[in-house]
Structures are given as structure tokens and as C-alpha cells.
Design a protein around this nucleic acid. Sequence first.
DNA 1: ATAAATGCAAAGCATTTGCAACCAT
DNA 2: ATGGTTGCAAATGCTTTGCATTTAT
Lengths: 138, 138
Amino acid sequence: MNTRGFVRKTRQREVILHVLRSTKSHPTADWVYQEVRKEMPNVSLGTIYRNLRTLTEMGEALELSYGSTYSRFDGNPENHYHFVCEACGEVIDLDIPVIAQLEANVSVQAKVEVTHHRLEFYGRCEHCKQTDSQQEAN
Amino acid sequence: MNTRGFVRKTRQREVILHVLRSTKSHPTADWVYQEVRKEMPNVSLGTIYRNLRTLTEMGEALELSYGSTYSRFDGNPENHYHFVCEACGEVIDLDIPVIAQLEANVSVQAKVEVTHHRLEFYGRCEHCKQTDSQQEAN
DNA sequence: ATAAATGCAAAGCATTTGCAACCAT
DNA sequence: ATGGTTGCAAATGCTTTGCATTTAT
């Protein structure tokens, strides 16, 4: 990865993307690592992590994580939704109705037992989106 | 914490819950730690973590995390929703329409710029819910 | 009395990073 | 030749845990 978004084509990234595309298992970095190693025994875990991030930034993959290495806690235990600012990390409670009916749909469709769900929105908070505009003006 | 759900009342847990209730900032464990220390200088980080988990299990708080310590990746970069089995960790793609209109609502209501959102359902997958029923029968 | 809870410090563990060598452009 | 990329290993940093001690019931 670099600052200006210029990306070279490498065999490692090629194989990693191929592995990602060839499964529906939502693999962890380590699983990808094991798979890639079958074809490239000398690949390193660091390369897997770096490319997984690059691919995600390129829009070629999705990363399913809360986006932060640590948990945040909410003193309000009722189900409600959140907005997360990707620039400063702030989390804001949202005041939109909880769509409970979706859970029933999912239960039937996926033949699973749904106990709860989570809905989160991501982007720039009021403060950060202003900061960005100012920077763009420079 | 213990196995049978019996919980004693302690000053530490009391203060931690009070700190949680008194903020809307969705604090990290460390932030809670710093706050609690103002009142109990000798409290330990381990106690914060243990109680945060206990309170979450008691339904007194919410933990905002993906529920796993590591990220999972999805080779399908189009926005779609997931079901996560809390017993085995399996992640399943869901085939329900993406509600794009919600993003506009949130933008206006919270005065933020929404770039994307994520919706996840949690519970037991087809296999694990069967396993559970069998165990209960023992 | 009894076992849950604490403080402390030492792991644990997924992920990141520094650096010299390498290779795509 | 230039600088993005890699492999390797050490380092990060949040979170968990073992253990002796304290404390709620």
C-alpha cells in the first residue's frame, strides 16, 4: 500500500484475490494464508494482511469487522442503531425505528434462529465532513 | 463471572455500571477504566473487562463489536447482509434486498454523510440449533 | 464458611510494522 | 532506476487468565 493509490500487479495479490473469490465461507486472514500457501509456500502472513487491506480499499473485497481493534460499550441495552464516523471513530445513537420484522424473514429464509440483529451506518460525522471540505480547499 | 449465573453485588461493578449509564459516548474499556479510577484508584483493568462482559451478559449493557477477535473477509464486494452463528461462528450471506433509502434518512437526521451501512443478524445456524435441542434433551 | 470477585502481572493472539532484498513498471 | 511489494521477525496493543487474597452472602 502507498499514499497515492498506485498499485502494482503482483502474483501474491492475484492468488489472494482468487482464493477470496473462490469461496463463500467468509474466511479469516489465516484461512486465506493457509490456502495461498498451497500454491505459494513462501508467502508470508504479513503479505496476506497487507493485501487483504489493499483489496478492501480497492473495493474488491469486504472486511467484516467492527472497524476497530477494540470494543465499545453502550450503557443503553435496548436495541437501537448506530452511526460510526470512519474519520474520528465517534459512535452516535440513531433515532430510527427498529425493524423487528426482518428477523422473522431471515429465520425462514436461512432456516436459522435469529436472536437479534445489528444495523450500523458508516461515513463522516458532522465535524469531520466539514474538516474534509476545508482540506480539499487547500 | 461463574458458570451458573450467580452474581454478587460489588462496588466495582456498581461504579462501572454507573459510569456506563452516565455517558452517551460509547466508551472503550480503557475509557471506562480511567473514569472508574477517579473514584477507585486501585481498580484493575482486568476487573473492568470482566465486569463489562458480565454486565453485557446480564443485559445491562451492549457490546459493539463483531463478536470475534478477528476479521472475516468476503470476496463479494457488493453490499449484502449477513447472518452470524453465535455458536459456531459461521457467516451466511442473506438474500434480502438492500435498503438504500435508510442511508438518506440517517444523513438528514444525524447531519452526517453516510457512505454505507451494514446489517447483521445473529443467532443459531441450522446445524447448531439442532445440536442445542439435542443437548437440552439430555 | 464458601465461592465469587478482585488486583496484579503474565500471557494470548490477531494484526501491524521495520527493514533489507526483490521485482514490476 | 525507482519505489511499490515481499518475507521475516519483532513489536503492538487490546483482551484474557492464573493465582493468591479479599469480600459478599
